[in-house]
Design a protein around this nucleic acid. Structure first.
Length: 227
DNA sequence: GACCAGGCACATC
DNA sequence: GATGTGCATGGT
């Protein structure tokens, strides 16, 4: 990060932003999902999609008792696509789910979250990225929210908010922005978990393309460059 | 009816 | 490496 600010100042700002969001929204208790497997499926389904629509898709699977790796793997592609239809891009997502299930059920993971957790996080990330349909954000969401690894998830909200705050250039790469957080925050999965969740909440409610700055929880903190 | 939502793969320059 | 495009439902 190009910065006139000292590392100490950057770290203080990052923690101050988190605290302001935590005070305003309360702990977010993410990820919304009952099991690590459900979290991973949700991570794929939520790509560029409103979470409400993902919930409908997951409900379709749950209501038919199909939200399990074995049962989903047995479904034919058209049936799976039909079930996840509400989440949008349903043909693409059915293919992505199939690719992930194949990866998840095959050795060395063999359908075991424990085995997944045992694989060192950078290697696990690399393997997730090799699955068609899993990109950087989805891989990191799985690492953080399903496997409890201290990996900071970057999404469109994170980029927009930190650009607005003047803390990141607009065209910063995924990896550079992720490094910015991981190098300036204590390496704790629980912190990364709720910090990202807070940013999504902020992004959904205030820091949209048309800024709604007046009521933003960061307005009074004098952190937002738009104020 | 336009715009947006917790991306990604692929083509092209 | 940067930029453009297809994928698609459902809410505002």
């Amino acid at each position: 990060m190009p910065g006139k600010k000292s590392p100490d100042k950057i770290r203080a700002d990052l923690l101050q932003i988190y605290q302001a969001l935590l005070d305003h929204f309360g702990h977010r208790h993410w990820w919304p999902g009952e099991t690590p497997f459900e979290v991973m499926i949700g991570a794929i389904l939520t790509q560029s999609t409103n979470w409400k629509n993902v919930e409908r898709a997951i409900a379709n699977l749950k209501n038919r008792d199909l939200l399990s790796p074995g049962k989903m793997a047995e479904l034919d592609l058209a049936a799976l696509a039909s079930l996840v239809r509400p989440s949008g891009y349903f043909n693409q997502k059915a293919l992505k789910l199939k690719a992930f299930l194949k990866f998840f059920l095959a050795p060395p993971i063999s359908g075991s979250i424990k085995k997944m957790k045992r694989i060192p996080s950078p290697l696990m990330r690399q393997r997730l990225l090799s699955v068609k349909g899993i990109g950087p954000e989805t891989a990191d969401s799985i690492l953080l929210y399903a496997l409890d690894q201290p990996v900071f998830v970057i999404d469109a909200y994170t980029r927009r908010i930190f650009t607005r705050l003047g803390l990141a250039p607009e065209k910063i790469s995924y990896q550079d922005l992720r490094n910015f957080f991981e190098q300036n925050l204590p390496r704790r999965a629980a912190l990364y978990n709720d910090y990202h969740a807070q940013l999504v909440e902020l992004g959904k409610n205030y820091c949209r393309k048309k800024p709604l700055c007046a009521a933003c929880p960061l307005a009074s903190s004098e952190l937002c460059a738009r104020l």
